[in-house]
Amino acid sequence: MPGATQELKLLDIREGDDFAGAHLQGSINIDLDGKFASWAGALLAHDRPIVLIGAPGSQQEATMRLGRIGYDNVVGYLADGMMALARSPHLVGRVQRITALSLHEQRQENVPICIVDVRSASEREGGHIADSIHVPLPQMLRHLDELPRDQKIVVHCAGGYRSAVAASLTCDAKLWR
């Protein structure tokens, strides 16, 4: 766990859709417009420096909300946000978003896909995608190394917030594998 959390320093606080479209490689995404502090508290180390990436003005709110849960480790933010990457396309990462129908079709065609359900145990008990594996988001950092490397990984939750976080974690993991 310590090894896994130490590199989680670049925190992208934009919406999951924006992160999926383009983000700085190696950043993780926790949308400020949601249970931001709860997930930051669950996934980030409180004693490692954090650099924020987001829209102008949102950094102050993020710093305040992190401070309220005891995270005083925000050291700064990427100047100009994603505009800073305009001339550095090689640093931009993307996350593909996939519809349920498209996922179904790809499975029918036997495309090797690992479906990761990041919801809670109680949500999963209410029904889940056949052959999906269960990695609740709070435990995801501990299990990143167990995810297959020779398949597409598709993460899902109930509404899209947590899967955006989870997708960013799996992208980030690729950097240091």
């Binding site: 700085l24 190696g26 650099v51 050291v75 700064g76 933010y77 990427l78 100047a79 550095s88 950097l175």
Partner: peptide, 19 residues
């Protein structure tokens, strides 16, 4: 005061140090 704007280079340095 403490929340400073970091350049892309500085940001990458932080990321890579962590990696």
């Amino acid at each position: 005061e403490g929340l400073v704007a970091l350049s892309l280079m500085e940001t990458l340095a932080r990321r890579d140090a962590g990696a």
